[in-house]
Nucleic acid binder design. Structure first.
Lengths: 215, 215, 215, 215
DNA sequence: TTCTAAACGAGACGGTACGTCCTGTCTTACC
DNA sequence: GGTAAGACAGGACGTACCGTCTCGTTTAGAA
């Protein structure tokens, strides 16, 4: 088990790595993505450019890593959606929060940068899905499955599809700035989704038996 | 108010304009958007760089204009969706066609470039909506209204929302490469949309009896 | 005779060229050669780096060109050594002037830079000889030939060798800082050279016979 | 005076020191001086960079030390010129050997590197003179003094000047590549030097008659 | 038909950022 | 404790484009 490698310098490495990611995040949040330069990141992080290029192959990769780290920080922790027992309530809560998040200018810039990256780089897109999107989707699907068990959602529904119908309109409206992201809009997406994938009435079980589903 | 200008050179202008837009389209279709340079466009179009900058303020604007022109070309013509009388049939046709379109690599690159532009530039986004998105949406809404009239779609449905629920999942799946764009997928989006916004025909209940449920 | 070439931009070209060479000269005169950077030259000249690299392949070449230009400036003019008729007087005048020149710190730095270049690059050395050294040597040899004609110098002397014996010690002492460059030293080099290559006494003609030709 | 040090790592020290100097020599002999890097030296010597910087303050110093060591190696030995009793013979032997030495490409690169260093660094130049040049010059002067004693050289000649007249032309011709370094050339330098500083035996004239010509 | 002035192709220009390389210092692990 | 390994901050390198400017050269309309 004796490895032949050199020293790991792990403390310095970690310190500079964090400084770089933090500086990147700050810069991307501050100004338009295309104006963020590797030189500025290095300067802000108090780091030589080579230290950046030693770890990442391009600006895209650094920015992407910085944004990934943003969501990964609480390492071991697994995300979970609220579960009050009422799907509609929970979804509206989550969707309204999501809509609000997009309103924050610095969050907006960060996510636009991230989307620009992954839209134009299939590899980064794959990494994004694996590291960020899937865990989040799993959490959401867990909530949906729990709803399926209590008959608040069609047991046969394709959960990926459900999530897309729920989230994609919000995402697209934000990305294209094609309309306001209000709470009412968030609610109406939940309503539409539940109409599309809610319990199939008259298949042996009555919703009413399980208690009220609507607000 | 008659100004004393020289010859208008309109023929040359038009020729070089077309050459620029065509070269831009070709380059964007060929390689990653960020590798398309104004210099390359000028060279390919057999044009001086200044001739480009005389007309457009930035590379973004040229690319955007090139893509706009792509869809505007059949000038006077107004798009219209098929109307067989059956909304489900028509929508599935359209959605399957849309899904196929995205599969063409050069179309893919063009639209990714366009989306990158408008995602990061609010002004271009506005122009995009005005010139491209809205006319298309109007055509789609016209078809939906026709469906409302024959009771194939909830008369109170917010048509913008309907279109988002229908298209946004497809768009997002394409943009993030998060799943295959099959005909079955296109169909399932139509199905879901129709479940969400179709006629409110309960089992043994008339739509009118239940009244609108939405807020 | 209609040429197919583009515009010559000669005025801009010449202006920026002069600015670059002047800035280079100033910087090389100011500080150690190795601390002169292309970036500093560009900044001082108010010029983009690319404008330098468009003309010269390396820093060496720019510096070399700057130093060449320094001596070439009076374009058509051909150098000539004084000719009073007395070789010893003339040579001592020239050698003392040369010794003094080397004492000027900014001249010193310039010439050290030049020598560093040509010592390490055979091509530059060839160009240096052709453009700077040879014309100067020709002027010197012209004076020596005139001396040979009046019997003040051995008619069979190899003039290249004479010049080397005369100048090389001064040059080496300066380059290696191995001794002071005084007027007395300059004189003693002339004396030694004249002893080595002066008229061969007793070969039929006495110098005195021809009488002094000087002023 | 025995100093109280720990385990005397002197052997390791000496080993790594030798490895560094040897690697430096090899690299300088192999390629252009400016392409020799400290990193390459360290790698070739199998040594950490810090081990180099612990001993020498800069790359210049390492290279200089390497070249110094080259000539110092036979430590206690003091150089001496041949003395056959005939100065001309001895000098021609030495000058021809010197000229040949310069023809060796790897020697050439080494000495060019050395000259570049000392031409641009007064401190190194001083060290060079003290450690390398002066001992050698002393040896040469010893031979000249011996010649003075037997009347083969002017007893009043400034031996530094004699050496310069003898060697500097060869050195300059080599440094500037301004001519071939042939045996005939070497001989002609000896001849010229002896004419300039040889015994003052005029044909039928006593030296005293002419008197010193110098100022 | 000749003249004239705008628009043009070409491409140099001042800049900015890129990604690479090397210097001289610092840190870690090993011996 | 000194060493090999090599990461680090810094900074120059030479390249690629940007958007501007400056040339001669079309070229199409007005004279």
């Amino acid at each position: 088990m004796a490895h032949v490698k050199g020293p790991d310098h792990s403390r310095r490495k970690e310190r500079s790595r964090q400084a770089i990611l933090e500086a990147t995040r700050a810069l991307v949040a501050e100004e338009a993505y295309e104006k963020v330069t590797v030189e500025a990141i290095a300067a802000r992080a108090g780091v030589g450019k080579q230290t950046i290029y030693r770890r990442w192959p391009s600006k895209s990769a650094v920015v992407f890593a910085a944004l990934l780290a943003l969501s990964e920080d609480p390492d071991g922790q697994s995300v979970a959606l609220p579960d009050t027992g009422d799907l509609e309530t929970d979804l509206k809560l989550v969707m309204r929060a999501t809509a609000e998040e997009f309103a924050d200018p610095s969050f907006d810039r960060l996510i636009r940068a991230l989307n620009t990256e992954i839209a134009n780089d299939a590899e980064l897109a794959a990494e994004y899905r694996e590291k960020l999107a899937q865990p989040l989707e799993e959490a959401k699907k867990a909530r949906l499955r729990s709803a399926q068990e209590v008959g608040q959602l069609d047991a046969d529904a394709d959960l990926d599809l459900v999530l897309e119908v729920l989230y994609a309109p919000l995402f697209q409206r934000w990305l294209h700035r094609s309309g306001p992201l209000t709470a009412a809009y968030a609610d109406s997406l939940v309503d539409a989704t539940l109409r599309a994938f809610g319990p199939r009435t008259g298949v042996g079980s009555t919703p009413g038996e399980l208690g009220p589903v609507d607000s």
